[in-house]
Design a protein around this nucleic acid. Structure first.
Lengths: 115, 115
DNA sequence: GACCTATATGCGCAAATACACATATACTTG
DNA sequence: CAAGTATATGTGTATTTGCGCATATAGGTC
């Protein structure tokens, strides 16, 4: 990272950036991340809160962990996930704000992000 | 802005947020957006710069415009696209920074400590 | 050991997505 | 009007993705 930003991004870099965005491009994963804004939680807690199936929640959590969005901590039988990348808060903040601004005329389907 | 802030986001809100992230979750679209950081450009210019086919570039641009990421300006035969949502810069900056940090932390290929 | 709980994973399927090719539309110029 | 240029779109296809179901693994209790 000694050089300045190249004018054209490499394919690998674009792929990495795209994957990061893709991690947040799914409603259920957003629901999980949002639930983890509060504090770290176990898989079963997240299953209860989100209403998803255990298998699906587990898969999404693993995907988010592989994307370095979440951290995994195993304690006995349970596995606790937590937000490990602080930029996730910023990303969600920015996107929520932008969307709110874009559809002030539309429904108020929005609430705070809570943090 | 909101009367109350529900702890759980509505499905519609999650869908909107996910779609916004999904718009940036594709290498070719990131390439287009990145090319437009400089200034507004026509479709054919973007085709040249990115090396994509005309049809594919056009479709991606339309998708980005529908997602309110890009604006469309028609001038005679040409159509110029430009970044309309200023938050896009922030999003890309944040993600790039986060990835860079993760890479240096993991690989340490540039003078850091090994793995 | 058997048994329970919490989490992960193999498998199949339906839907979404990105792409290439060909064609259509819109606009300009002669 | 015809011909050329720039952009959009219809169609088919291969790949990816999200999900449910069943099952496997890991760790705890008796």
């Amino acid at each position: 990272m000694s050089l300045k930003k190249p004018r054209t991004l490499s394919n690998d870099a674009l792929e990495l950036i795209a994957r990061r965005f893709a991690a947040l491009a799914e409603p259920m994963r957003l629901r999980l991340v949002h639930a983890l804004f509060e504090r770290e939680k176990s898989v079963s807690q997240l299953v209860d809160e989100t209403g998803g199936t255990q298998a699906n929640v587990s898969r999404h959590l693993q995907m988010l962990a592989n994307s370095h969005v979440l951290a995994r901590r195993k304690d006995g039988l349970q596995v606790f996930y937590s937000i490990t990348d602080p930029t996730i808060y910023q990303l969600c903040d920015i996107v929520c704000g932008s969307i709110e601004k874009n559809l002030t005329k539309q429904s108020g389907a929005f609430g705070g992000r809570g943090r």
